[in-house]
Design a protein around this nucleic acid. Structure first.
Length: 284
DNA sequence: GCGCAGGGGGTCG
DNA sequence: CGACCCCCTGCG
């Protein structure tokens, strides 16, 4: 199956390397292949054309339009952000092809719990092993791919099973969070309809979900909340360099950064964070 | 080549 | 505020 569109705001590197996802890998021809839901998709960009192809459960046009957030007008968003100040103007130009993916809520929760005090190559490795062991196999282009396991597929997995996958101290967090979601102590369905602050409170009940991980989930999943500002060591550094300018960046409080983001970036702060982070991370 | 030290998208107690 | 697991990376 194949779907081709003309789309200016769509750059493969910007989308897949900006830090929002862990399951997309670059091919030799520069295209990217990834797994989401029960789909394996390859994406290629040729001039203004984006080409999606792969194994798809349903209509590839609908599935890719939803996942790649094609219904949203990023040109307008970029214009709005550019007006804020010079930093935003530069960063929005730098990351001009960024789109925020609509990633499955459950998968995003687990992935970002794994991300805590961890590095990207290892995070990706853990997620691949988890998927290979408990997900479903899909063949595409002669290669094997594995879907991200559903909560039910992790129902009987023990703490030590998780430990064997290389999760380290996160084993218990995955175990407990899976249980809480299966028991509906935390209902993913209800979270979808909650206001951002309420949804955040709910996510924080999960084991291994603190403020930073909660904000990443709110921003990068289908929840798609742009009124959050995930603060990690990098964002702290960037915000200090650009706006606060203290001698010692470790003395900059989260509260200080959050208030600055609220007043400066308002309800687009999540996107502002992505553009600024992506820009300064690559040019630092 | 290989062995080893260092560190990492935070969270929890 | 210190501990936390372990894979990856980089350097010797």
């Amino acid at each position: 199956m194949e779907y081709i569109i003309e789309q200016n705001v769509f750059e493969l590197e910007d989308i897949f390397e900006c830090g929002q996802c862990f399951r997309w890998n670059k091919e030799e021809n520069g295209s990217y292949t990834g797994v989401f839901g029960n789909n394996v998709i390859n994406v290629e960009k040729k001039e203004n054309k984006v080409i999606f192809k792969g194994v798809c459960e349903g209509n590839i046009k609908d599935i890719c339009s939803k996942y790649f957030d094609l219904y949203r007008d990023y040109t307008k968003i970029r214009e709005e952000l550019s007006k804020i100040d010079e930093n935003l103007k530069i960063s929005v130009e730098y990351g001009k092809g960024i789109r925020i993916l609509n990633q499955d809520l459950w998968e995003t929760i687990i992935s970002f719990i794994i991300s805590a005090n961890n590095n990207i190559p290892r995070i990706k490795g853990i997620i691949e092993r988890l998927s290979k062991k408990y997900g479903n196999k899909i063949i595409y282009g002669g290669k094997e791919y594995y879907t991200f396991p559903l909560p039910e597929q992790l129902k009987d997995v023990t703490v030590s099973d998780f430990r064997e996958l290389g999760l380290g101290f996160r084993d218990i967090r995955l175990y407990e969070t899976t249980k809480m979601i299966l028991n509906e102590d935390v209902s993913l369905e209800k979270i979808e309809n909650m206001k951002t602050e309420e949804a955040r409170e709910e996510l924080l009940k999960l084991s291994g979900v603190g403020p930073k991980v909660a904000d990443c989930i709110l921003l990068f999943s289908t929840l798609k909340r742009f009124d959050v500002f995930p603060i990690d060591v990098w964002v702290r550094r960037v915000m200090n360099d650009l706006y606060i300018r203290k001698e010692d960046e470790t003395k900059v409080s989260k509260k200080e950064i959050q208030e600055l983001a609220d007043t400066k970036f308002g309800n687009l702060q999540g996107l502002a964070q992505q553009y600024l982070f992506y820009w300064k991370r690559d040019t630092a």
